[in-house]
Structure formats: structure tokens, C-alpha cells
């Protein structure tokens, strides 16, 4: 498990992409690219949970709140978000 802490600098979401891209770092020019996956299949509550995480990251972006996200080592898929 890896943790990345920082400011949400950018969120990019596109219907043609399988993920919502989340750019986290101390400055706009120094970021890690992570992502919240989109599940075309799977239970509704999982999709709702992922949307909820994306919602929180969006709120953090505009309010300049720091976040800590968890993701696997060598993988950018976010599975946990903590607002700090």
C-alpha cells in the first residue's frame, strides 16, 4: 500500500476514458497522476462509492484542502481518500 498526500491540483473525467484522472501534488507543476476507476459492471453501491470519493476530491480541489489517498504500490488506482 502507498499513500500520497498533497493538494488536488486537477481532475479530468471523460466518458471515453475508463478512469477519472486525479493530479495530486504540492504545486501545479509537481504532481502524481492517480485515478479513480469507473466500473461499467459491478454492483451499484460500488459505483456510488467511487463517485463519492471523486466528489470529495473535487471539493478538496476547490477548497485547497489537503488529501491523503491510498493506492497500491506501483499502481495509481485510488481506493481510499482522507480529507485533512
Amino acid at each position: 500500500m502507498a499513500c500520497t498526500t498533497g493538494l488536488v491540483q486537477r481532475i479530468y473525467i471523460d466518458a471515453n476514458a475508463e478512469n477519472a484522472c486525479v493530479f495530486i501534488g504540492p504545486t501545479p507543476a509537481s504532481v502524481e497522476l492517480l485515478f479513480v476507476p469507473r466500473r461499467d459492471t459491478g454492483p451499484a453501491h460500488t459505483s456510488a462509492f467511487l463517485t463519492s470519493m471523486l466528489d470529495a476530491l473535487g471539493q478538496a480541489l476547490v477548497s485547497q484542502h489537503e488529501v491523503t489517498v491510498q493506492h497500491p504500490e506501483n499502481d495509481g488506482e485510488i481506493y481510499s481518500v482522507e480529507l485533512r
Partner: peptide, 24 residues
């Protein structure tokens, strides 16, 4: 994001400014 000649929204991007306030 939307297709040419189509008003249906398909995505969005928060255009990042070149500075970033830290915290409230």
C-alpha cells in the same frame, strides 16, 4: 467536453491555475 455539433456533455477538466493556495 462535448462532440462537435452536439451539446451533450461527455466529460470535464478542472483547468489548473499556475499557483495553488495551501489550506484555508
Amino acid at each position: 467536453f462535448h462532440d462537435d455539433n452536439d451539446a451533450r456533455i461527455v466529460g470535464l477538466d478542472f483547468t489548473p491555475p499556475n499557483i495553488s493556495p495551501v489550506g484555508p
